[in-house]
Design a protein around this nucleic acid. Structure first.
Lengths: 220, 220
DNA sequence: TGTATTTCTTAACTTAAGTCAACGAATTAG
DNA sequence: CTAATTCGTTGACTTAAGTTAAGAAATACA
């Protein structure tokens, strides 16, 4: 059986629809910005002033399911904050897709080549219609200049993500595929319904057939 | 065969020797600070002013081989910048040590519970006599207040580490134990001589016997 | 709605890692 | 410097994942 044997369709940046630009809009009663603020305030208290700056400067785009946000070999100039939808990061190795991460609501997607001079080693694909805040190095620079305190917020946020990432890699190393699957259904139960199982298998570092067997094994 | 079946000996913080405190010392011709500056300047240009602040505020400690810097269940209030030596991070799972990371010269060790209210899930042990810069949340706060631009440096640094960490976890997921070993000897050749093989096996997510077989297999 | 495609499962077989045990080599400690 | 421990390798056997192939179920879409 072959999975994903058609070449990736490149949609990318240009296929995106700019939903709103906040410089043109009064800032009250709106869902999408509040999601971003809600997320940020998990890590550090946000002042009203900060909130305004973030909202004014940000912009939101909508991507169709199947859109490739980033391709291997291309430069990465965007990072994302997912408001609604699901994005998958994957590599192609020996012609096979290797899923390495799933990102959903309230998660930040920063390609590892983002803002660097090196081309990306991985792809980013929308698994669902996705609504997302989009960041660029230019926007970041502008924001940090306007509001230096944001550096502190970002630092705290990135440090928290880094600690979580370290825990993730530690757990992965220490666990068997079966344990990793049990952990997955425990901590990301919604993803089971949202993404194909062979991508989950790949994410767990195994083949789809093995995941099938594991599922049968644990249903006793 | 049993490895590491004796309980870890707790040395920790208090067994450390404070080598120098820079408030008492003229700041010229010295090795250890330059190492730290050299490291930091990989990520962002360092002004003379910043350099002074960092050097003035920092302090260096020396730890004996076998010292446990952090224990499972304990709060983590220190992070480290290794000037000379080697530190291992490991968990204990079902009575077995699971090595998750090795840190050597010019690497920063930030326990994932550092500065948090949650107890550490892992241990940190010096595999060699180790000379290290030691950071604390208090020191950090002091530095950031004195010199807000440092936030920017740290943010850039942590973002770079995070990207590298993402690459690491991606590679680990995509690769077989054999590939991981080949990758290890390619990118961290010095560690092969410095740390016991069964710890490397654990780091690669396999048992010592399997690593032995892999080594035999690839020597043809 | 029906057909094509993708996705998931099962089976038989292969390969490699885990387990248990033994032994020699290297290292450490007294 | 010797004894004890730790470490690395090997062998025999077990277990689980990879591979190949086929077919059923679900999904997409024309």
């Amino acid at each position: 059986m072959r999975y994903e044997n058609k070449p990736p369709i490149v949609g990318s940046y240009h296929s995106a629809t700019v939903v709103r630009h906040y410089k043109d809009k009064p800032k009250q009663d709106n869902y999408m910005e509040n999601e971003i603020i809600k997320y940020l305030s998990k890590y550090i208290p946000i002042t009203k002033e900060m909130e305004d700056v973030i909202i004014e400067s940000g912009f939101i785009k909508s991507f169709k399911k199947g859109t490739i946000l980033l391709e291997e070999g291309k430069m990465s100039n965007e990072c994302y904050f997912i408001i609604k939808g699901c994005v998958r990061s994957f590599h192609i190795k020996d012609g096979e897709e290797k899923t390495t991460e799933f990102y959903t609501e309230e998660e930040a997607v920063t390609p590892s080549a983002y803002g660097k001079r090196t081309p990306s080693a991985h792809y980013l694909e929308c698994l669902e219609d996705t609504l997302s805040g989009v960041g660029t190095p230019e926007l970041e620079t502008e924001l940090y200049q306007k509001f230096p305190q944001l550096e502190s917020l970002t630092r705290a946020l990135v440090e928290a993500i880094m600690a979580k990432q370290q825990d993730t890699i530690d757990y992965f190393k220490m666990s068997s595929p079966e344990e990793r699957y049990l952990n997955f259904i425990k901590f990301r139960p919604n993803l089971i319904q949202r993404v194909p199982q062979h991508q989950i298998a790949s994410y767990l570092g195994i083949k789809p057939e093995s995941l099938s067997r594991i599922r049968k094994r644990i249903m006793k």
